[in-house]
Design a protein around this nucleic acid. Structure first.
Lengths: 190, 190
DNA sequence: TCTGCGATGTATCGAGTTGATACATCCGGC
DNA sequence: GCCGGATGTATCAACTCGATACATCGCAGA
């Protein structure tokens, strides 16, 4: 069970929904989605594909060489009906698992296929998560401020500003989402 | 051999150089150094400590309960002379391994114990690394700009701005370093 | 008082992941 | 023609994570 981390499965489902792909290209696109950090290896991708095949979410076609020429065979994966259904389920999921570090990036990448209310929930959840983090760092920082050397302080400060910037970005996105849905931005917390 | 990823070893050496610590506290500090992402578990820390013990870099003291009261025993680790030497070697290392994603944060955290010329080298190496990354992302972005939906584009754009911000931060640090060494900032590239 | 409950503390294990490696074909430049 | 780098599928030892086990401490509330 478990089909590995789940994020990878979602990324594969989303990418194969756009078009069928073979392993090599699939990995490149998954890693483009996930970013330079968090990139995955074949040792993750292939077992995941194997599990998804077993679960009937995807199907594999041996790409036949047309006209019999010596074309190398590539294995092309595409979504099954069951896989499409699974993707829809995943995209409808708006719980905490959608906004943690591990999966937020992938969920956001597929926002175009996600309902507006779920989008908003995920963005707000992500913001809360980051604000908690910010809170924790600031309190730890104010407790140890004097004991840290210049560089450690600089590093903490920079990390803090990164979180702030992320929160501002989310605020803009949330405002835009609310605007396009017709709900007034000026309603609850700052 | 291999003593695992190397970054962890450096973090342990650096932290134990400040003061002896037991495992639980050591892990908390290592994870504060590494940040919420990249945090490590006991399954990494304990084997690392075992290896370092075997290599003679650290020593373990069973913390004796004073006055015989029923105090629980904690295992306190401290640097050996060999460990201090090893730390100095590591801090003198200014090669590419010092500025990749994995280890830059830790190297920077110990800048106060690092020579000024090595500091500068690491900061400039890190900047180059990020500029390469930026280059790759922009070219990929300009090739696929029209085919991306609003959200994917937003994500890429945000990633790009994160890199830019990081580079600006490094520029400031480099300027400060040059200033404090007495070398004119206005000498080579922009 | 005593009873849980969360933090502190050491330690291991199954399951999952990485980076290296193997092997083979394709294609552009010299 | 031939070399090097990209394309392509696949595996493995070494390493890491999250869960779990076990035990003590301090302390808030019944």
């Amino acid at each position: 069970m478990s089909r590995r981390s789940g994020v990878l499965e979602l990324a594969v489902l989303g990418l194969l929904h756009e078009s069928p792909l073979h392993g090599y290209e699939l990995r490149k696109r998954v890693n483009a989605l996930l970013g330079p950090l968090r990139a995955i290896s074949y040792g993750s991708l292939y077992p995941c594909l194997k599990d998804m095949l077993g679960a009937g979410l995807i199907a594999a076609d041996e790409e036949a060489s047309e006209a019999g020429a010596g074309r190398r065979s590539r294995i092309v994966y595409k979504l099954t009906a069951e896989g499409k259904e699974r993707l829809q389920e995943q995209l409808a999921e708006g719980g905490p698992s959608a906004w943690d570090d591990e999966s937020f990036g992938v969920r956001f990448a597929f926002f175009a296929q996600t309902d507006a209310d779920v989008r908003l929930k995920i963005l707000e959840g992500r913001r809360s998560r980051l604000e908690e983090r910010r809170e924790k760092v600031t309190s730890a920082l104010s407790r140890t401020r004097e004991k840290l050397d210049r560089y450690t302080l600089e590093l903490q400060q920079h990390g803090l500003e990164s979180v702030d910037r992320e929160v501002r970005w989310l605020n803009e996105l949330i405002a835009t989402e609310r605007g396009s849905v017709g709900v007034r931005p000026r309603s609850t917390q700052s």
